[in-house]
Write a protein that binds this DNA or RNA. Structure first.
Lengths: 224, 224
DNA sequence: CTGATTGTATGACAAATATCATATTTTATT
DNA sequence: AATAAAATATGATATTTGTCATACAATCAG
């Protein structure tokens, strides 16, 4: 069993407030999983009863709208935690998490986390600040969804993918999403998304080559 | 100076976890304000350094989009708290709060609240659950904004206003909003909002009479 | 390798929504 | 009450976006 104190998640998440002893306790009760690309970590409505630490890989957090469309709210990458809100609220998870790449995750039961939560002030403060950050992000995102055009939202989404996940050696976006998934992030129909990508391509804002997307004109994308 | 232990806010908010002693401390350091309709309680970007308790009245939480449009994220009524997220994150407020009616609010400085926060586990848990509730709401709202039509969103907004604020004796919605504000909640142009309200009126879903809006066909509104 | 399946692309069209113009009504101010 | 200002309403039109159909390309299973 790997020790939590060397784990990347410990470096970047709320867990950085845990001390050696707590990390040891956690290492003893955690369960590790390999999640294959396309597989769910959990689905909306499930009782998760713990949090997931993302040791490697990226997943999408999404929710089905009443119309049956999948809206992607956020991509979450290695080093981050999943399920904090649900744990605090003591409710089923509100979103589904599905792997976009093969992933390594660890599950830590709620009882354990709540123990740290009560015993370690800095840890609970970190969790809360993380949730507060999510709330701010969600509010800002909401304003964009409500007030910006699909074209603007697509440009922003591409820039966000660039900033969050960077590029391959050939400068193309590292994160690999289907057109349908990009549309799910933007909140539009897949065909509209494809059409706008083609338009961006024609106008030199981006370059398309197969599934690869390369951002070209950052200024135009930003000022859209 | 009025005592906090009889205040409505104490009944309905995170503050219900405070004991007599804590309420007394709070009563001694709070500041009461009357906010007139249309006036701000705070504006996005401000350092608020405390929380506001809404003793009476309703306000809107809004944010300007980059296009310069005001998006209303939430209406907040008496009994609730404002500024919890900002306090925890230790950041300027992300949203503006503007009175929709004359309001009575109390301001309690951050130092005081953080004292309760550290000393009273139930209180801090309440604050956290409240923020988690906001996050869930925001995520759900976001999906609606991204995936539903303006018509659907307007219908939902009207139902929400009905459920949250109820009606006058004549069954018209109690909460009084301008068309521009309704449009700001729905996330659409004011003219589009007016036009759809007219359409709903023609089709018997609602009844318009001056500024008064009366919901008529709840089933059709719900199944839109 | 080959057919089947899935993903991407594009045209044609319809529907939804925004924008601009202008009229009408309501509200506020003097 | 008279006037000005703001809010509401509606028409005309342009733009955006969604939907359906179809073609083409890429990927996968056998």
């Amino acid at each position: 069993m790997s020790k939590c104190d060397q784990c990347i998640v410990r470096e970047f998440s709320s867990l950085k407030a845990l001390n050696k002893e707590e990390l040891l306790k956690m290492a003893n009760c955690k369960t590790s999983y390999i999640i294959k690309k396309g597989e769910p970590i959990f689905s909306e409505g499930e009782n998760v009863n713990g949090i997931f630490c993302i040791k490697d890989g990226v997943c999408k957090l999404s929710k089905l709208s009443e119309n049956g469309n999948e809206q992607i709210l956020k991509l979450v990458a290695k080093g981050e935690l999943l399920g904090q809100r649900s744990m605090i609220s003591d409710e089923p998870v509100n979103l589904s998490a599905v792997a976009l790449e093969d992933m390594e995750v660890c599950f830590v039961p709620k009882s354990e986390i709540l123990g740290f939560f009560n015993g370690n002030n800095q840890f609970s403060m970190n969790v809360m600040k993380s949730i507060c950050g999510d709330l701010k992000e969600a509010d800002d995102h909401l304003v964009n969804m409500a007030q910006k055009s699909v074209r603007q939202r697509l440009a922003e989404t591409l820039l966000e993918l660039y900033e969050t996940f960077g590029t391959n050696e050939d400068k193309s976006l590292r994160i690999k999403l289907s057109r349908e998934e990009i549309a799910g992030m933007v909140g539009t129909a897949t065909e509209s998304c494809i059409r706008l990508l083609s338009e961006f391509n024609k106008n030199g804002l981006i370059e398309l080559s197969g599934k690869k997307i390369t951002l070209k004109d950052f200024n135009k994308l930003r000022s859209m």
